[in-house]
Amino acid sequence: MTASPKIPLLEARDLVVNFYTRGGVVQASRGVSFQVDYGQTLGIVGESGSGKSVAVQAVMGLIFTPGHIEGGDILFKGRSLLDPAGRKFVRQVRGKEIAMIFQDPMTSLNPVFTIGTQITEVLRHHMGMTKDQARHRAMGLLDMVDINAPEKRLKQYPHEMSGGMRQRVMIAMALACEPRLIIADEPTTALDVTIQAQILELLADLQQRLNVSVILITHDLGVVAQLCHRVAVMYAGRIVEVGDADQVFAAPVHPYTQGLIRATPRLDVVTERMVSIDGVPPDLISPPKGCAFFPRCDQAKKACSRMQALVELGDDRHVSCWCAAKENVR
């Protein structure tokens, strides 16, 4: 890695996260690697239980007992976030240089404090602002996320706002410390479609204007198509395909990616019957030995019972599949 001239903003290497539950050890993240460059939006897409949230929770230090990070590393600007020697660095980075937007703005805002208190708290803690400075900046932030009458809004409690408005407040809080990286974990899943459209436009606009990097966790390929430069597809705790979003959508290589794209209903295409992927995702307490998608795959062959690592296909495109690797290896 030292030979590489360019250090990505954030890099996860072979991240392993296990949860020790009564039912057994849930292998939520089984060697996940990804990187985000400056000013880039990476979409991590996968279905429930694919481990997409766990991967970014590890970045934010939000893995709590019974979960443990048991392997791999996370580097921010080339420095480890998991190294116990770098505690101080980690505290400076998380919440300041890396900010997070959660799925449900009702539960992630504190119901007993006003919006103003919650935003200014961040500013005073991380940026060392005075009360007045912080209030002024908070108004600017609300304005930035298109909330009108910011002065009035600062005095309101979360319950006085609609879901869309609360998500705007969450975005304002995430932007408070001028982060380099924003992690958005299903930011629009709890919202109605027309409100989702508003929030997606806002995120895209802010990303461009502030040139911030974004990791967007979602289960919706449409959201990825609208916002992301790169996309990583997760299945059963592993990334099965990652690459430039346009390329992955235009020519998916992994059979799971292909299936997912086919199964996503499209407004602009008429089909008489929806395409499904037969079967169900595997249990992560005892995942299959080789490729986790093997039991549901229509292109499965013998080699699939052995694990295949991510193989580079060129153009910074990586796929973890025996069929694909054979066809494309040069």
């Binding site: 479609v193 997606l200 919706d220 198509a225 609208q226 235009a250 499209r266 407004l267």
Partner: peptide
């Protein structure tokens, strides 16, 4: 409001 899962489109 429903995004189409095809970036260029």
């Amino acid at each position: 409001a429903v995004p189409v899962p095809d970036p260029p489109v």
